[in-house]
Simulated scan of single mutants.
Amino acid sequence: MQKTIKAGILIAALVVPALIFLYLKGFGENHYELPYMIPLTDSTTGNVLMKKNPNPRWNQPEMDTVFHTIPEWELKDENGKAFSSKTLKGKIYVADFFFTRCTSICPKMSTQLTRVQDTFIQNADVNFVSISVDPLYDEPEVLQKYAKEYDAISGKWHFLTGDKKVIYPLAVKGYYIPVADASEYDKAIKAPDETFIHSEKLILVDKEGHIRGFYDGTNKKDVDRLILEMRVLIKIYQTAS
């Protein structure tokens, strides 16, 4: 009887760890999550749009929510060359809207972006895009000077200008960021900081053009959260590949 009990204990000691290992191997991987922003809705019913999940995992639903994708656009960079959103396909990037004459929130935002850039300096999949809301003044040579002030790395951090009729709708409908030129409503407004109204938000965009987060670019702690969530997004792509 004792031999049988000992044999049972020995078998259990050998088999149970093996079963635990197999369970952990099959189901215990680290799964990283980061939400998508801006779910799309049906204009007639108001219901959230859904699509069939092509490859549902064992713990995921068959239907997925359809999320906003930033539309394609083309502007001009700090070198005076055409710069298209197609250049950013397959890259994680952080976007913001600013102007070089801004003396309030823009210097804080750009300083924080320098810190984020330096954090991911070795990662070629990470880019940064700063789009001017004062394009008539912010010509390429002005953007070049501004880029140098914040140690922007050419080819990694892009400063863009163009037609206001393109930039403003892109900000509002593409990146869900408010922007306005107050001088259009009040001709007495002259000071640049009072003229150009825009958000302090930094926008995290994934490789497919989905918005994955909004962050206060003037707040160090919120930018720390951006850095953390960028690392999470990078890990998600690494795990999926």
Results as ranks from 00 to 15, higher is better:
Ala95Val: 14
Lys187Glu: 13
Gln238His: 07
Thr41Tyr: 12
Trp58Ala: 13
Met37Lys: 10
Leu10Asp: 00
Val166Ser: 04
Lys148Ser: 11
Glu149His: 05
Arg101Leu: 10
Asn47Ala: 15
Tyr215Val: 04
Trp73Gln: 06
Glu62His: 04
Ser130His: 00
Leu228Tyr: 07
Thr111Gln: 07
Ala152Tyr: 08
Thr161Tyr: 02
Gly155Pro: 06
Asp64Leu: 14
Thr103Tyr: 08
Thr4Cys: 03
Lys89Arg: 14
Asp64Met: 11
Tyr146Val: 04
Asp64Tyr: 11
Phe128Tyr: 14
Leu22Glu: 05
Arg231Cys: 01
Gly90Ala: 06
Ile177Val: 13
Ile236Tyr: 06
Cys106Phe: 07
Tyr185Gln: 14
Glu29Leu: 06
Asp118Pro: 02
Ile38Pro: 01
Asp125Ala: 15
Tyr150Pro: 08
Leu75Lys: 04
Ala152Arg: 04
Glu62Val: 13
His158Glu: 01
Ile153His: 00
Tyr36Arg: 08
Glu208Gly: 04
Thr41Leu: 13
His210Thr: 00
Asn127Ile: 02
His158Lys: 05
His158Pro: 02
Gln60Thr: 10
Met63Glu: 15
Val172Met: 14
Asp181Met: 10
Ala12Gly: 15
Asp125Gly: 07
Val223His: 02
Pro140Leu: 02
Lys3Val: 13
Ala82Asn: 14
Asp134Ser: 06
Pro17Gln: 08
Lys6Asn: 05
Asp42Arg: 03
Thr69Ala: 08
Gln2Ile: 15
Tyr176Ser: 04
Arg225Phe: 00
Asp77Gln: 02
Phe128Leu: 11
Asp151His: 14
Val16Leu: 15
Gly90Leu: 13
Tyr137Gln: 05
Asn53Ala: 06
Arg115Val: 15
Ala191Val: 13
Asp181Trp: 08
Ile167Gln: 07
Val66Arg: 01
Ile105Ala: 13
